[in-house]
């Protein structure tokens, strides 16, 4: 709770400064743009937080999103009904998630290496199947899925809210949520307590695979094009946001809401460099510096409280 409060304060300070320092930051249109562009990352973050708390890593998310979107796009362009294409894309995401889960949780292959290879395979297939030319021009009914506006926002915000609410409830109010925390904290203890950590690992990877497939499909709907490099770098941004939100890379710790607040900070700062007209050569340095200050200040506050 303190972490959440700390992040709210940091966000409020940064947003207040930007509201005064720039002409258009504190406008409804800009806030809508910031939120619209982080919604799909929130969907991934919600599932990824569970995976990270459970003590696992998945670097294949960008690749799974790309290949799911591309397969959907190619199917639609080849005359397959878009509803069937969506199921195919989601099934592919689930399948890759199960595969990741089995090789990491069951065969104990290092999660970083295992999912790195899956990522490469997925990206390779996406590029190979499309030859870098994104399938585009999808049916209007399919485009509605991501382009419909709700109170001025893209409908994607609803999907993000649903993902955050459901997975927060699972994490904090169900037995499986407790098992995820225990398993991530100490796998041996979890097994002694009768928790099937292999099954849990496969479930968590499958969840992330499903969400990654969903994100690839929604990006295709939003852009009316399925790019093989649709969300490059999203995985690392999501991991960074979860860690800013107090998540531990070694498992056992984390919170979806805090992660979302970490993601808000990152997106606000990304938006700020454009609002402030900062030279592209300095953008990453500025982003990294502010995030470093945010993380350090949180650590210092924590030490003071101890």
């Amino acid at each position: 709770m303190r972490r959440i409060l700390g992040l709210i304060i940091v966000n409020v300070i940064v947003i207040t400064i930007l509201a005064f320092a720039t002409k258009y930051f504190w406008t409804r249109a800009n806030l809508v743009v910031i939120i619209d562009n982080m919604t799909l990352e929130i969907v991934i973050l919600a599932g990824y937080t569970l995976l990270l708390i459970g003590g696992y890593f998945d670097l294949s998310v960008d690749g799974v999103a790309a290949v799911s979107g591309v397969v959907l796009g190619l199917l639609i362009n080849n005359g397959i009904n878009w509803v069937i294409a969506i199921f195919a894309g989601l099934a592919l995401g689930i399948g890759i998630g199960i595969f990741n889960g089995v090789i990491v949780a069951k065969f104990k292959i290092n999660g970083l290496i295992a999912t790195l290879t899956t990522w490469w395979i997925c990206i390779g297939f996406s590029l190979g199947m499309t030859k870098a030319i994104s399938p585009y021009n999808f049916p209007d009914a399919f485009q509605v899925l991501a382009q419909t506006k709700v109170f001025g926002f893209r409908v994607l915000i609803i999907y993000a809210i649903i993902a955050v609410v459901i997975l927060s409830v699972v994490l904090h109010f169900t037995r499986i949520g407790s098992r995820i925390y225990v398993s991530g904290d100490n796998k041996q203890s979890a097994e002694l307590m009768g928790i099937d950590t292999v099954k849990l690992g496969i479930i968590l990877y499958t969840l992330v695979g499903l969400l990654a497939g969903f994100v690839g499909i929604m990006m295709a709907s939003r852009l009316d094009a399925a790019s093989p490099s649709t969300v490059d770098g999203m995985t690392l941004r999501v991991i960074a946001a979860i860690v800013i939100g107090g998540g531990s890379l070694s498992g056992g710790k984390g919170n979806i809401i805090a992660g979302v607040l970490g993601l808000v900070l990152m997106h606000v700062l990304s938006n700020a460099v454009i609002q402030l007209g900062i030279s592209p050569y300095w953008q990453k340095a500025m982003l990294g510096s502010v995030l470093l200050v945010a993380v350090l200040s949180e650590k210092i506050n924590l030490k003071r409280r101890i």
Binding site: M219, S227, G277
Partner: peptide, 26 residues
Amino acid sequence: IDERATHDGSAASEASTLEAYMIAHP
């Protein structure tokens, strides 16, 4: 002439950069 904005080459980054740029320069 406004300062250039850059993206990272992914479709998502291109979209968010475009939208933010248009807000910053209405």
